[in-house]
């Protein structure tokens, strides 16, 4: 016998110190902020809160992008193209969507597309488009 049901739960997560600064800059200034690692000096984007290599905390803000390089991509059924990109000036990789990239290839140049309505989180970047294709 099978028992089925459904439940709604209203989760809400605190972005925390590092991600709040990132979200506010996206929302208010359409700027992408990375953070310099206090341990190893790498520029983190997404900016932490902690460095994936050395475990250090996110330190001073560093503006990165909006230009970027495509590191890896795949096409997901129903969800479009999903990618890892390196923003200009950053050392890490950011996971995001590709928009307006007719023929993705690793190493190609991309540019962040900002959402017209922005709320202060990663969705304020709609995705990354091929450099040179404007809307």
């Amino acid at each position: 016998m099978i028992v089925e049901g459904r439940v709604q739960i209203p989760f809400r997560y605190a972005a925390g110190a590092a991600a709040s600064r990132f979200g506010a800059a996206l929302r208010d200034e359409r700027r992408i902020l990375g953070a310099r690692c206090t341990g190893c000096d790498r520029v983190l984007c997404p900016p932490g809160p902690f460095c994936g290599s050395c475990g250090g905390a996110a330190g001073a803000a560093v503006e990165v992008g909006p230009g970027a390089t495509l590191l890896a991509w795949t096409e997901l059924p129903d969800r479009g193209a999903f990618a890892l990109v390196r923003l200009d000036g950053a050392d890490g990789a950011l996971a995001h969507r590709l928009v307006d990239v007719p023929e993705p290839r690793v190493g190609m140049r991309l540019r962040a597309r900002f959402a017209p309505e922005r709320g202060g989180d990663i969705r304020d970047i709609e995705g990354f488009g091929a450099e040179g294709i404007e809307r």
Partner: peptide, 24 residues
């Protein structure tokens, strides 16, 4: 962390609608 720099703590609302189905 660089917490002092962010004036306003942001958050993300993620209301979740979960279906469940169990074998007895």
């Amino acid at each position: 962390t660089a917490g002092a720099i962010a004036a306003e703590p942001l958050g993300v609302a993620c209301p979740m609608d979960l279906g469940w189905r169990y074998a007895s």
